[in-house]
């Protein structure tokens, strides 16, 4: 049979199953199988092993530390991102574009470089670190260093989501609010902020997901001390190096599920978050 004959058999488009098949065939070994293997290997010694690996004090501590440090980094970056986006879309000043580029820079920097840079500034023998040391404060190799690294690495994420919404928001809405008699703060609180709700939630989830998974910078600034400065990704790395595959795998499953949940929310809740701002 000639190819031409099978191409359109009674309205059946052969290109469709073939394209879908090729796409899935490429994705399978690259993305789906690695994810699947976490779950398969993590549970093949029985759920009991998985559970005991999960509730080990070291593992619990690592997960908690990851959550807490990511939470503070997210809180900071969402608030700062909101503020920076407001300033940079409302006011024009000399060097504004340079600032926008700089804010977005941390996404492009390798995380190990970021961690190294932080050490060079805040480390015990570094410029600012020595100043803090003289006050009896040590920042590096503490949970605060992890928060600092998370802030640095996730800096542009919330900003990047919120800024475009600010840019496209009509100025006349805020002007209307001002002529009605609202102060700047009232206008921001009642008019601007509600329109940013979707962007804020989206930016926060993105920042949190990224911060929880951060490894490169964290391992340099935290010292990787078990039950003191060891976050979940560092725990996975440490246990893997010690040959405790089950312990590493249990945490890996939790982190994978967490990202999965966060990105599902981002994907499916987008319409929900934005529904009120639909245009006619």
């Amino acid at each position: 049979m000639k190819i031409r004959a099978i191409r359109h058999v009674r309205g059946f488009d052969v290109a469709r199953p073939i394209s879908i098949g090729v796409m899935l065939g490429i994705m399978l070994p690259l993305v789906l199988l690695p994810l699947l293997s976490i779950f398969v290997y993590g549970t093949n010694k029985g759920l009991g092993t998985f559970w005991s690996a999960l509730v080990a004090p070291e593992a619990i501590f690592a997960l908690k530390l990851s959550m807490v440090t990511s939470f503070w980094a997210t809180l900071f970056n969402v608030i700062f991102g909101l503020f920076a986006a407001y300033v940079l879309s409302r006011y024009d000043f000399w060097g504004r574009n340079a600032v926008i580029v700089t804010i977005s820079l941390p996404t492009a920097i390798p995380t190990a470089v970021a961690g190294f840079a932080l050490l060079l500034l805040w480390g015990p023998n570094a410029t600012l670190g020595r100043l803090l040391n003289s006050q009896g404060v040590q920042l590096m190799f503490t949970p605060y260093a992890i928060i600092l690294a998370n802030i640095f690495v996730t800096f542009p994420l919330a900003f990047g989501v919120i800024k475009p919404v600010f840019d496209t928001m009509s100025r006349s809405m805020e002007e209307a609010s001002a002529t009605i008699g609202a102060t700047r703060w009232q206008t921001f609180w009642y008019v601007t902020l509600p329109s940013l709700r979707g962007a804020i939630v989206g930016g926060a989830l993105l920042t949190f997901a990224r911060a929880v998974g951060e490894f490169g910078s964290t391992i340099l600034v935290s010292g990787n001390l078990a039950e003191r400065t060891q976050t979940a990704p560092l725990y996975i790395f440490a246990k893997f190096n010690e040959g405790q595959i089950e312990a590493a795998n249990a945490i890996a499953i939790v982190l994978a599920l967490l990202s999965f949940v966060i990105f599902s929310v981002l994907f499916f809740a987008r319409d929900w978050l934005e529904w009120e701002s639909q245009e006619t």
């Binding site: 009509s170 006349s172 809405m173 002007e175 209307a176 609010s177 001002a178 002529t179 009605i180 008699g181 609202a182 102060t183 009642y190 008019v191 509600p194 329109s195 709700r197 009120e276 701002s277």
Partner: peptide, 27 residues
């Protein structure tokens, strides 16, 4: 602007998208 007590009706209406008609009027 906020201390002048003028009413501006914008070409693109400039209603507050997250407020109902009632809340817009009562703002």
């Amino acid at each position: 602007a906020r201390e002048r007590g003028v009413g501006v009706i914008f070409q693109a209406y400039a209603l507050f998208p997250r407020m109902t008609v009632e809340k817009n009027i009562g703002f």
